[in-house]
Amino acid sequence: MLNIAETLHRWCREGRPFALATVVDVTGSAPLPAGTSVAVDADGNAVGSISGGCVEGAVYELCRQVLHDQGAPQRAWFGYSDDDAFAVGLTCGGELDVLVRRVDPATDPHFGAALDDIVQGRPTAVAQVVDGPYDLVGSTLCVLADGTASYGTLDGGMTDSAVTAQAGALLRSGRTARIELGSDAATCPDRLSVLVHVAASRPRMLIFGAVDFAAALTRAGRFLGYQVTVCDARPVFATAARFPDADEVVVDWPHRYLEHTAVDARTAVCVLTHDAKFDIPLLRLALDLPVGYVGAMGSRRTHEQRLRLLREAGMSDEHIARLHSPIGLDLGAHTPEETAVSIVAEIIASTNLASGMPLSRGAGPIHRPVPVFPAPANGRPGLDEAAARAGVGRGAGSR
């Protein structure tokens, strides 16, 4: 849904009914993840894509049918077909489970209000029931960054509370995911499968060391959607003119700045100074914070010296094991631009718990499915628990 949020927002403002088709589950290798949507309005205008083209025609016709009939949401399954070259199917070999529902801004005003938050850049989670009781399938509940439900309702009671708690945790983690709830009279009496669409704030990339490599990394980080800060204690180097792509350039001692700035499980910390008087105090603090990635630049010799100094400073092996040093993947990089690609490639691999090896040497599905996990017994997940299962603490954000 988030892939077409601006168009849906405009249609809601215009009071234009539309059919919304959303991928609610992916099996095997599929081109786009769960949460991706296509929408069709009453005039036949379509926006979005869920398969890169191979099933769009069938989804379009299903949307037109649901919109015309004004009936209940419908489910459709698309899998691989090799018997007929013209059959509907995914040539990539994956399987898609698609939910199609009709949205009328006149009767679903909360949907437009949620889209308004999303396009305005306010962190928002939209929880959509994709399986469960007939009268709840397709229903949505919007949750804001403070964890409170802001728009919509499911049952007005325990179900709302349970879904709000889960959606709030996923919003803090910054990742869209599918959750399973129910069969627990104390929290959620109905068994539900809920897809939580998360429009989170931009994750942060903190680059310490105002060097040429930092300028290239700033551009790469911004391209990937990070809010990028460059920090250096030397005012002659830490200037906005040298780093026009940074959201913020700070003149301060690195460890002092990190100690007082906001970080979370999606924050990437990149230390490019390779100077012990900056590195060691900074890394001691960074490796003790709940950030997603900590990497430090330097040669093998610098790395060994860095490890020795960190241990002498009292840092445990468990904390040191979080350090990516020397920073980046082995791409044979030489220039600042190549090095920046090496670094962000490692952050992406770390984010997705991927190996970083060539796909040609691997086997199995290329695309990892969106995780599906049950609610905890008490119905109130802590951030660490929900975040770990949703893939938090691994760097960059996702759809």
Rank of each mutant, 00 (worst) to 15 (best):
N3C: 06
A5S: 14
E6P: 01
W11E: 12
C12W: 12
R16I: 10
A19T: 12
T27G: 08
G28N: 13
P31E: 06
P33L: 04
T36D: 02
V38Q: 06
V38K: 07
A39C: 03
A39N: 09
D41L: 03
A42N: 05
N45I: 08
N45P: 00
N45T: 01
G48Q: 02
G52E: 06
G57F: 10
G57A: 15
V59L: 03
V66R: 02
V66P: 04
G71T: 00
F78N: 12
A85E: 11
D97I: 00
R102C: 01
A106I: 10
D108A: 14
A113W: 10
A114E: 13
A114I: 03
L115N: 12
V119S: 13
R122Y: 15
V126G: 10
A127C: 01
A127D: 06
V129W: 09
D131C: 02
D131N: 11
D135G: 11
D135T: 13
L136G: 07
T140N: 04
Y151M: 02
G156D: 09
G156V: 11
A167V: 00
G168P: 02
L170C: 06
L171F: 06
R172Y: 09
R178G: 11
I179D: 03
S183P: 04
S183Y: 09
P189I: 02
L195E: 11
V196C: 13
V198Q: 07
A199Y: 05
S201T: 10
S201W: 08
R202N: 07
R204S: 15
M205I: 04
L206Q: 00
F208I: 01
F208D: 03
L217H: 03
R219T: 05
A220D: 02
F223C: 00
L224S: 08
Q227E: 12
P235D: 14
V236A: 15
F237H: 13
A240R: 15
F243Y: 08
D247Y: 09
D247T: 04
E248P: 04
V249Y: 10
V251Y: 12
V251M: 10
W253G: 02
W253L: 09
H255T: 00
E259Y: 09
T261P: 01
T261I: 00
T261V: 05
A262D: 14
R266V: 01
V269L: 12
L283G: 00
L285G: 06
A286S: 04
P290L: 01
G295M: 07
R301V: 09
T302E: 05
T302D: 07
R306I: 04
R306T: 05
L310R: 03
E318A: 07
I320E: 08
R322I: 05
R322K: 15
L329W: 14
G332C: 07
A333R: 00
E337Q: 11
E338T: 10
V341Q: 00
V341R: 02
V344P: 01
E346I: 01
E346S: 14
E346Q: 15
I347M: 13
L353C: 11
A354P: 06
A354K: 06
S355T: 15
G356K: 04
P358R: 08
L359R: 07
R361N: 07
G362V: 00
G362S: 07
R368I: 03
V370M: 14
P371S: 11
P371I: 05
V372Y: 04
P374F: 13
A375G: 05
P376K: 11
P381E: 14
G391T: 14
G393V: 07
